[in-house]
Every structure is written in C-alpha cells, then in structure tokens.
Design a protein around this nucleic acid. Structure first.
Length: 427
RNA sequence: GGAAGGGUGGCAGAGCGGUUGAAUGCACCGGUCUUGAAAACCGGCGAUGGGUAAUUCCAUCCGUGGGUUCAAAUCCCACCCCUUCCGCCA
C-alpha cells in the first residue's frame, strides 16, 4: 500500500504515477479519488477524540489520588461519566472512519516506477533482450506430442477434477519432478537462495499482505467454511514469512526459493488456452523471493530476473525478456519483467516467468520492516519472480526438444534427474 | 474432537482495577576503568499515529474483538493461536 504521509505530501506526483496505469485508477468513484477526504475526516475525528481522552486520563488520575487520600471526588466522577460516554461515541465514529480509509487504501495500486514504459495494453510491452535461436520448422503442439507419447492424459484430468486439470504419466511426471529439483538446486547452490517449504494455504491476513486480497478474491480458491485460501503463488507464504517482523539491516537481503503447487480459479480467462497445460487450475512453480533494502529494489530486480533466465539458458530454451508497460504491470508491482519462452508450435514467445519489484508496497502492507543503525524501522522492499513455472517449462521442453520421429530430446542438465534418460520415446 | 495450562517489550519473566509503557534478568548501544579485551560500575535502550520551530507534548498498543468502570495488562464474554495429556489418523 502507499505511504500515508506521502499521500498528503506528494499527492500530485503520486496521482500522476497512478494515472499511467489508466485513468480509471484515479477517476471518479475510484478508491484513490476518495482517499484524501477519508484521510482528512479520520484524522479530524481522531484529534477530537484524543483531546477528550487526554482530559479523561488527566481527571481519572486526579480521582485516583483523591481517593487514595480519602477525599471526596464525586464532582469529578460525575463530570467524567459524561466525558466518557462522549468519548465512546466519538470513538465509534473514528473507528468507522478509519475502517473506510483503510479499505480504500488497500484498493489503491502501487504507483509505477518511472522506468516503466508507457502503454495502453500488453501490445505496448517493450522487448529488452533475446537469448537463443528459435527453431522455425513445423512442430506439433505439446498436447499432441504428449498424447502421442502417452505421457499427458487430458481426459483423465477432466474425469478426476474437470477442465484445466491434467494427469501426467511416466516420463512427463518424472520430467515435472526433474525440473522442480533442477531449478531448486540451481537457485540454492549457485545463486545463494535459502530453500524453504511452506503451506499451500494461507489465511486472510497473509493474502492481504502481498495484495491478493481484498481486491482479487475471485481469482482465489477458498476453503469452504474456513478462512483459508489456496495460494495462487509461493510469493504469498514466502514473502509473508516476515510479516510484522523488524529485521536488522545486516540481515538483508533475505533470498528464498521455494517450490509450491499453485491454484488459480482463472475466472475471466474462459476460452483462453483451453487446450494443453499452459493454463491450469493447479500448477507447479519454483518461486524466487527477495526481502531487501529499498535502495536495492531495482538492482535486485535485474539480478532476480537474471537468476530466472539462468534456468532457461541451462535448459537451452530460447527466450526473450520484456518490460511490462504501464497498463500491464500488476496491482502490487512497481515494475515487472516477463520472461517469455519460445514455443515453436505457436511460433511465438509465451510467458514463463514474471519478475517484479514491489518497492515498499508489500512491506508496508504486511508489516515487513527493517532498522538501520540508530534509525526508525521502515518498510522493506520485496521482490519475487517465477524461477520458473514448471508446467510451462515442460511444454517448452517437449516442443523445443521434439524430433520428427515423434520423440523428445531431454536437455542434458535434466538427465541426471531423469535416471539418465536422454530422450522420451513412445512405448 | 475431549481435558488442562498458557499468550506481556529482541528474548526470558514479574505485575493488590488507580502517578505501570510496564519491575527484574539477558541481549544490544554509549561511557568509566584497562596497554587492549573481558569483568565490574554508570547511563541509555519498544511501536504506531498526531501536534510543535524545538528540548518536548498528546493519544493508542500487554494474542484479537467486544463489555463493565471515572479509570483495565489486571474484572466479564466471545474468538484465535501455542503447549501437554487423551482419542483419531497419513
């Protein structure tokens, strides 16, 4: 969430940075449009309430002293009875105003970093760099490759759970596990991340800390009858590991990698990527998370993105990196790079990782803070990125490794994780 | 699921309803002493919001939310979490 002092101090600049996301973000009826008035009202009520409370505290102390000396305090008692009931009324109003302000505050997205390119849609995203030489011959879609090899079973997924669920068998199941292990080993051993294993469900506070709630409830699966949600990404539990903590500046940066399953309702994406395993309700992902000094947020983003890219380079999969434009950057993010892998069957690059810096937005929201020597606690910066989405990676391996005889060559770095298997062939 | 106990500052751990934001110890920071270090001694050491030019002042915070009272860490109610025992179970 945005800084409350900055709301008053830098109103114009903040509004301009928000408006780049689209006029609706700051337009009539937006949370932002109501925010300043709600802030004023809350503070005004609070000031009144505090003045009365100070009076009450002062006289109550006096009553205590008088009683201690055995003196009569009935006059003060009577007067404070009235003050007390007024405090109660004012307090209720103050709390109401505070709740309205807080609710609006949680709906305001992160003001964009100045280096985010302008744009009106994802078509305006800016390509930063490319790696590898894409193959341009005719390659079947991964669902055909997988079905022909007998390793992807879409009917079984539909039978067990419904659409957007898949069963992987044999080499595909093994490949899913191999990718997971390879990625975790790479980040833990070569990139210096501490591996963590976390719950795949999270409560409301945790979901709010990273920004999934309150605004995006329809994207989440909620456990019936409980205040628990299935996580849409490991970002949620891993970042929130530090919620309401004050870290010493010497402990920064914290860098974690984690494997988790991810669950997304995909509300609003009906009809998109309905075939294959590009868009599933449940998928596996290895995530990278940084908790860092705000001064390092942007340089860490470059590092984190490079760590995610290293996975694709090791797998020898061609990709490109794009900077998301103003219209496409997510709610909590101040700047995002997407990594897109080459899918020969579609003859285009498709998202396989999204790396974002959140600045202090999540730190403020989740109470993740750090203290510099002799200084006050301040919100830490957070970042995260997929390193990588495993299902989509498997798609890329199948398509990029496909041979005209129908088999698939397994990237060399994965073979140790595949029991030495060098290629997948039909049984 | 049943029973019992417990949630207080970075940690440990006190706290008859009234000058307690909270004893004490540890940790941490500064100083004295020392060639240096340790020990000892002295001093300091929570967060959030708000007011002021400023030393500073005001309010809130003892798991969470309500309630009683002039006044709540302290009394009452509900909920959450943790520990132990029993039951069930991968």
């Amino acid at each position: 969430m945005i800084d409350r002092q900055a709301l008053r101090r830098d109103f114009e600049a903040m509004q301009a940075a928000l408006a780049r996301r689209g006029e609706a973000v700051v337009g009539d009826g937006s949370a932002w449009a109501r925010l300043r008035e709600l802030d004023d009202r809350q503070r005004q009520l609070k000031n009144e309430s505090e003045a009365l409370q100070a009076e009450r505290n002062r006289v109550s102390k006096l009553i205590g002293m008088k009683k201690g000396k055995g003196e009569d305090a009935s006059e003060e008692l009577h007067a404070m009875g009235e003050v007390s009931s007024r405090v109660k009324e004012l307090d209720a109003l103050t709390r109401e105003a505070e709740a309205l302000f807080a609710a609006a505050l949680l709906e305001v997205p992160n003001p964009l970093h100045e280096t985010v390119p302008d744009g009106a849609s994802e078509d305006d995203n800016v390509e930063i760099r490319r790696w590898g030489a894409p193959r341009t011959d005719e390659v079947p879609a991964h669902w055909d490759i997988g079905t022909d090899l007998g390793i992807l079973d879409f009917d079984a997924g539909a039978m067990l759970a419904g659409s957007r669920f898949t069963v992987m068998k044999g080499a595909a199941a093994r490949l899913e596990r191999a990718l997971m292990q390879f990625m975790l080993d790479l980040h833990a051993d070569k990139h210096g991340y501490e591996e963590v294993w976390v719950p795949a469900m999270a409560n409301r506070k945790t979901m709010t800390g990273t920004g999934q709630l309150p605004k995006f409830a329809e994207d989440l699966y909620k456990i019936e009858g409980e205040e628990l949600f299935l996580i849409p990404t490991a970002e949620v539990p891993v970042t929130n590991l530090y919620q309401d903590k004050i870290l010493d500046v010497a402990e920064l940066p914290k860098r974690h990698c984690a494997y988790t399953p991810c669950f997304r309702s995909e509300a609003g994406s009906a009809g998109r990527d309905v075939r294959g395993i590009i868009r599933q309700h449940q998928f596996d992902k290895v995530e990278l998370v940084h908790i860092t000094h705000p001064d390092r947020a942007l340089s860490d983003l470059e590092e984190l993105t490079a760590h995610a890219e290293a996975v694709l380079q090791a797998l020898e999969l061609p990709y490109r990196v794009v900077a998301l434009c103003a219209a496409d950057v997510g709610f909590s993010s101040q700047k995002t790079y997407d990594i897109e892998v080459w899918l020969p069957s579609q003859r285009c690059y498709r998202e396989i990782s999204s790396c974002s810096s959140f600045g202090q937005f999540q730190g403020r929201r989740a109470g993740i803070r750090f203290r510099e020597e002799g200084g006050k606690p301040q919100p830490a910066a957070t970042l995260n990125g997929s390193g990588l989405a495993i299902g989509r990676c498997l798609v890329a391996v199948l398509e990029n490794g496909w041979q005209s005889d129908g088999s698939v060559v397994i990237p060399a770095v994965l073979r140790p994780y595949m029991g030495g298997m060098e290629r997948i062939v039909a049984k």
